[in-house]
Each structure stands twice: as structure tokens, then as C-alpha cells.
Design a protein around this nucleic acid. Structure first.
Lengths: 145, 145
DNA sequence: TTTGAAATTGATCATTATTTTCATTTCTCA
DNA sequence: TGAGAAATGAAAATAATGATCAATTTCAAA
């Protein structure tokens, strides 16, 4: 399935008349192999282990491309760091974020989604995307504030 | 009710051993008189009309205090500008944000809230606060993309 | 395979939002 | 009223991200 994402991205690159490069490949492979929610810096650190010549700016640019192509999504959580995560087609999830340990739990709830649509419709709004984030204490951190 | 908020803030200031100043008063009054979702710059512009000597940094510092005291809340929408809005006690609302005209609609939905709590509980999570933002096209902008 | 235009890269500089510093002014209250 | 703590404003410091540009790489056509 990593290969699928890579192909998807290759198709996007081609459509835009862009080129395939070693750096991009290294960045994309590293991104897809990593789980979770990566900051630009996180990813840069990891990529450097594979290919030390890759610059910070290229990681930025490639993540931007990955977002445009739909392979990744940008997340803006309240800590002020933009993070990127894989976007699996047909799948959407929201986040529970621990304000003590920083752990991020993903969840999906169709009932919430459909209520959201209902609210939007009531306001004549056509929703393209949404964020739902809950901040609080995870199971481990609960109690020992 | 503006007076109520002012008193609430005064109490917070006192508890922290801080001082009341003309600048803070001007900033707070201007903030409370304005509706909507203000950026630091918005508020600074408005305050300058009342008191031209007020500096940018003071607006920042005062908004920070207002957030801490619970009179205001910080919002981080995807446009990269932190905005502040009044926080009425007992009241919570979420946002519909038009990605064409930038309009922000507030809504409240108890059903969504209770489903959220349910999800959190399932993960052993104690929620302190949450954000729900839906991005899309408002009634006016819908269709004429 | 060679070639050359177009795209990419990485280093560095520019920007934008926010925070901090610091010398000076202003409050508070004994 | 006077001392000491806090607040202020201007400017410098950060931090994240975006843009610039000369050098390099890619790729398709010759």
C-alpha cells in the first residue's frame, strides 16, 4: 500500500509536468514508512539518515506537494507546529490530544460526522473539510496532573 | 454584562498581584465592545483610535492575560492568524468558516458535544477543551467558486 | 548518447507572527 | 509621598515558513 501511495504521487507529479528526483523519493519513502504526525523537522531528521544531503527547504516543498496530491494532510494543532500525516483515501479521522504528554489518539465516529453535516446544511453551508480536536488528559496522564 | 467581564478580569488581575493600568483598560474595553473574532492587529488598530500610545506588545500581553483569566479564548484557524473572541461562561460554540469570503459562523450543538464526550470516555480521555471547525462554502459563496 | 530547456536543489536571505529585553515610566499602598 | 514592584513601548530576538538564485539534475528529442 506504500507503493500505491507512491504511484498516486507519481501520477500527480506527472500531471503537473514535474520531475522525479532522488531527494523526493527519499523524502516520500521516509514519510510513508513513518507513522504518526510528523513535523517538518521530524521528517528532515529521519530523511537525513537515509540521504544526508537533503535540505530543509526541500522537505518543506515536498510536503507541500504531498498535501496537494492528497497523499498527506496538514494538521494545525494548538501547539503551533504544523504536522503532516498520511491521508488514506475514504478515511477520515479526528484527534484526541493529551495536553500533558502530547500523545495523539486518532478516532473516527460516523455519528458525529453526520450530525456535523446536518448542522452545516442548516446554515446553507457546503463543507469541504473539517477538524475536530479534543484536548485533555489521556488515560495514562489522567489524575497525575 | 461588559461590566461583569471587566470585574471578572479585575479580580484575576488582583489575585495575581498585577496592576490596573490605563492601557489595559482601554484594550479590554475595546475588546469587549467589539464582536467577532479579532486578530491582534485588528484590536491594535481599534485601540489606537482610543489611545494612540498603546503599543503592539501590550496588546499581545493583555490578550494573553484575558485568555488566562477566561474572559477571552484564543482560536487557531487554518489561515495562520491567531484570533481572539469573547468567552461567555457556560457557553461553548464551534465554527463554520468560509474558505472563499472568510466569513465565520458560530454554532452550538449539544448532540455533537455529547457524542464527543462519549468518544472521549471510550478512550479513557478526560476532555478539557475542544475545537470543531468546518471549512467550506457559505450560503453566499456556494456555487460561485 | 548527447544535448539543452525546464525543473530541482540547497544555502541563504526575506517575511511574518510572536516573544523577549531593557531602560523608563507608572502603580500601589504603607 | 516615596520606594519597590509591575507595566510599558521600542526595538531586538526567535521561530516557522517562504522566496531567491546560482549550480545541478532530469528527461525527452535529436
Amino acid at each position: 500500500m506504500v507503493q500505491e501511495r507512491i504511484n498516486e504521487f507519481a501520477k500527480y507529479i506527472e500531471k503537473k509536468g514535474l520531475k522525479t528526483t532522488q531527494q523526493r523519493n527519499d523524502i516520500i519513502r521516509t514519510f510513508l514508512k513513518s507513522g504518526g504526525h510528523l513535523s517538518v523537522d521530524d521528517l528532515h531528521q529521519k530523511v537525513k539518515k537515509v540521504n544526508p544531503r537533503v535540505g530543509y527547504a526541500t522537505v518543506y516543498r515536498t510536503l507541500k506537494l504531498l498535501s496537494e496530491s492528497g497523499v498527506a494532510v496538514e494538521r494545525h494543532f494548538d501547539d503551533g507546529h504544523t504536522r503532516y500525516e498520511h491521508l488514506e483515501p475514504e478515511e477520515h479521522h479526528d484527534h484526541l490530544i493529551c495536553i500533558k504528554c502530547g500523545d495523539i489518539i486518532e478516532f473516527e465516529d460516523k455519528n458525529i460526522e453526520s450530525l456535523q453535516e446536518k448542522v452545516a446544511k442548516k446554515h446553507g453551508f457546503r463543507v469541504v473539510t473539517h477538524n475536530l480536536e479534543m484536548y485533555g488528559y489521556c488515560k495514562k496522564c489522567n489524575g497525575n496532573t
